[in-house]
C-alpha cells in the first residue's frame, strides 16, 4: 500500500517537475524583466512542490531512497507526467496558454486534495494551493490581455491555443491509480473535475475573445509512461549530471 501511495505522489510530482523544468529554460529569456521574474517564480514554486511530493514518496517507496533518485534516475517510461507539461516553449503565447490550461487544472486538483485523508498529502496541497492561486491569476490575466490585445497577439494566442488545446483532456483522464486513490479517500479522480474545468477555462477564453478549438485529437499516454518526442530531450538535460557522474554528492 505504501508503495502505491508513493507511486501516486510521484505521478503528482512529475507534472510539477517537468513543467518547472520547462519554465526554467526561459529564465533570462523572458519578453520583459517582470515577466521573466514571474515565470521563474512559478518554476520555483513547482519545483518546491516537486520536492515535497518526492521527499514524501521516498519515505513511502520500496524503490527509492531520496528525492533526487526519483527526479533524475528513472527511465522515460517511468515518468508519469501529462503531455501538456512537456510541450516546448515555442513562444510566449504557447508558454502562457500551456500555463493557464495547467494552472486551472492544478487549482481544482489541489482544492480537492486538500480533503485527502492522508495528512501529509493534505498538508502539501494546502501549502501549494496558495502558490497555484497566484499562478492562475498570472496566467489568466496574460491570456486575457494577449487575446484581447492587438491583432497580432490575438492571432498568436489563437494559434497557440489551437496547438495546446488537444492536451487538456489528458489532464482530466483518470489513470488506474487515480481511481484507486480516490476510492481510498487519498487522491482525486480528475474526471470529477472535468465539468468545472472546462466551464472555467472556456469562460476565460471567451473573455480573452479567443475561439474554443474543436476537439480533434486528444493527447494521452503520459500517465502510462508513453511520452511525446520532446520528452527525451528534456530528460537528457535533466539527467545529464546524474547520469554522467553517478553516485556522487552535489
Amino acid at each position: 500500500m505504501k508503495n502505491k501511495i508513493a507511486k501516486y505522489l510521484i505521478q503528482l510530482g512529475d507534472n510539477c517537475l517537468i513543467l518547472g523544468q520547462r519554465l526554467g529554460e526561459l529564465c533570462g529569456h523572458g519578453p520583459a524583466l517582470e515577466i521573466d521574474i514571474a515565470l521563474t517564480n512559478i518554476s520555483l514554486d513547482l519545483l518546491g512542490q516537486t520536492r515535497a511530493y518526492f521527499q514524501y514518496a521516498a519515505e513511502m517507496s520500496d524503490d527509492f531512497d531520496n528525492e533526487d533518485q526519483i527526479a533524475f534516475l528513472r527511465k522515460s517510461s517511468d515518468y508519469r507526467n501529462c503531455h501538456l507539461t512537456e510541450l516546448p516553449n515555442t513562444d510566449f503565447a504557447h508558454t502562457i496558454i500551456r500555463q493557464f490550461l495547467f494552472d486551472q487544472y492544478h487549482q481544482l486538483l489541489l482544492t480537492d486534495l486538500m480533503n485527502s485523508n492522508d495528512e501529509k498529502l493534505k498538508a502539501i496541497a494546502t501549502k501549494s494551493i496558495k502558490e497555484v492561486n497566484y499562478h492562475l491569476r498570472f496566467s489568466k490575466d496574460w491570456v486575457i490581455r494577449l487575446g484581447d490585445g492587438t491583432e497580432t497577439s490575438k492571432v498568436k494566442m489563437q494559434e497557440a491555443l489551437n496547438t495546446v488545446w488537444r492536451y487538456t483532456e489528458e489532464l482530466l483522464r483518470p489513470s488506474e491509480l487515480d481511481i484507486e486513490m480516490e476510492g481510498l479517500g487519498i487522491g482525486t479522480n480528475p474526471d470529477q473535475l472535468k465539468e468545472e474545468y472546462f466551464e472555467k477555462v472556456k469562460s476565460v477564453l471567451q473573455f480573452a475573445t479567443l475561439e474554443i478549438p474543436e476537439n480533434k485529437f486528444f493527447g494521452k499516454g503520459g500517465k502510462e509512461g508513453v511520452h511525446t518526442e520532446h520528452f527525451g530531450y528534456i530528460l537528457s538535460d535533466l539527467q545529464y549530471m546524474q547520469r554522467t557522474y553517478p553516485n556522487q554528492q552535489w
Binding site: 526554467g24 529564465c27 516537486t50 520536492r51 533526487d68 538535460d237 549530471m241 552535489w250
Partner: peptide, 19 residues
Amino acid sequence: WITRAPSLRRKVALLAKVQ
C-alpha cells in the same frame, strides 16, 4: 545550467539566484 543542475536542491537554488 538551470536545466542541468545536478540535484533538485541545487536547481532551485540556482533558479532563485538567477532570478
